[in-house]
């Protein structure tokens, strides 16, 4: 009996010297069935009213729901086309021009129905401005590799078919092309290091978001392209 007791005490001391942690985890969904904390709703309310007054302005209509994704997407096409049309409307250059944006830079979706100023702020919340870069034609190879590696970014006035990037208007005489993008990307954001090859740079003072707002207003019904631009 005493011998057994000794074993028990030794056993207890061994268990005792280690702390024992059991960990389990889950996520709790927050949805329409969740109640609101009234103090918080009331606190948000004046901020919301002020935001709504500014943001509920209807700019246009969308006939479909537009999302962003890779390799190309309806929202990516809309955004890059809007930038291209807006920037080239009154500009005529002998050298080819195309637009390149980043998939990660379009932060939300546009639902079917009215498109508000708030929707545009949600897809483009950043204070990024428009930049034109004149690049040697050879840099297109680097852009092509980048698009292959990343899986696709929004482009306009260009197509990538079977991994080969083609910009409209490029001929055998072409030495330079212009890329319209944002200051964030031109400065090396998202590792678009090929922009370092630029021989000329023109920083427009226009915000990309303001371009989207202007074009949405002009289009009234958003012009949708479901073309697969990156293949």
């Amino acid at each position: 009996m005493f011998k057994h007791l000794i074993y028990f005490v030794i056993g207890a001391s061994l268990v005792a010297c280690s702390s024992h942690l059991n960990i389990s985890g889950a996520k709790v969904s927050i949805n329409v069935d969740s109640n609101e904390k009234q103090e918080i709703s009331s606190f948000i309310s004046p901020f919301k009213d002020s935001m709504d007054r500014a943001m509920n302005l209807i700019l246009a209509e969308s006939s479909i729901s537009m999302e962003v994704g890779r390799p190309s997407s309806i929202l990516g096409n809309w955004a890059s086309d809007a930038l291209f049309v807006n920037q080239t409307r009154t500009v005529k250059l002998s050298e080819p021009i195309f637009c390149l944006l980043n998939t990660g830079g379009l932060r939300s979706s546009i639902g079917k129905g009215p498109v508000t100023l708030g929707d545009i702020f949600r897809i483009m919340p950043f204070e990024n401005s428009v930049v034109w870069l004149r690049m040697p034609l050879a840099s297109l190879d680097k852009i092509q590799s980048y698009l292959q590696q990343s899986g696709g970014e929004p482009i306009s006035n260009a197509l990538m078919i079977n991994g080969k990037l083609t910009v409209n208007g490029v001929s055998e005489n072409t030495k330079y092309i212009w890329v319209i993008t944002t200051d964030y990307l031109a400065n090396g954001g998202d590792r678009m290091d090929f922009f370092q090859d630029a021989v000329e740079r023109s920083d427009k003072k226009t915000l990309l978001r303001d371009v989207f707002i202007e074009e949405a207003k002009t289009q009234k019904n958003l012009i949708v392209s479901s073309e697969n631009r990156i293949q």
Binding site: V9, A12, S13, V15, A16, C17, S18, S19, H20, L21, N22, I23, S24, G25, A26, K27, V28, S29, I30
Partner: peptide, 17 residues
Amino acid sequence: GLFLGKIEVSARKVACW
């Protein structure tokens, strides 16, 4: 904020002998 993560740690810490 679509979800709240919830990790439970059961602490059974026993003092040394």
